[in-house]
């Protein structure tokens, strides 16, 4: 009798253990994004212009350099931070300054933002300043989009292929 009781208790313990494992290995489900919404991601990597233009060294300055270091142009390594704005239906969705990467600030700036928006028709705009200009933008683009629920689109930027792209 005791043996049967112990066997039953063991079976119960094993069953409880695997039930616990089985249930929590895939339940309860998690709603990461509202299924009725769509997602816009802004993601790119781009280097801003140098912080100042290159400058030709004078003869005196060149003479002060070691012979093997005498490059005629002095070009700064540091890059400008990018200014990026994203608009949706004319409303500013995001405005951010993207500093250059690297300890010397001489690397590319990277953007990664995500925006959960209502599905439906929208006017999506993006603009970026990557030069020392005081106002205005160097690159901008606007799209008319019809987003379905759960649709994910990505704004990319490739200077070599014409600037902003919607993927």
């Amino acid at each position: 009798m005791l043996r049967i009781l112990r066997g039953s208790a063991q079976a119960l313990a094993y069953a409880a253990f695997v039930a616990f494992i089985g249930y929590f290995s895939a339940s309860p489900s998690y709603t990461h994004t509202d299924p009725d919404k769509a997602l816009i991601r802004l993601s790119f990597s781009h280097a801003g212009a140098p912080v100042r233009p290159c400058r030709r060294l004078t003869q005196e300055e060149l003479a002060q350099l070691a012979p093997n270091m005498r490059k005629p142009m002095d070009c700064p390594r540091e890059r400008l931070a990018l200014l990026v704005e994203v608009t949706l239906d004319g409303q500013l969705l995001h405005r951010g300054s993207l500093p250059p990467s690297g300890l010397r600030g001489d690397g590319s700036s990277t953007a990664y933002e995500r925006f959960t928006v209502d599905a439906g028709r929208h006017s999506l705009g993006v603009r970026m300043r990557d030069t020392p200009r005081e106002s205005g933008f160097d690159h901008q683009r606007e799209w008319q989009i019809d987003l379905k629920p759960r649709q994910s689109v990505m704004i990319d930027f490739r200077s070599e292929t014409g600037g902003f792209k919607l993927l």
Binding site: F24, S25, S27, H32, K37
Partner: peptide
């Protein structure tokens, strides 16, 4: 990748 995995069954462990 063109669609958000809005609801997922997580392994909570």
């Amino acid at each position: 990748l063109n669609e958000v995995p809005a609801v997922v069954s997580l392994d909570w462990f």
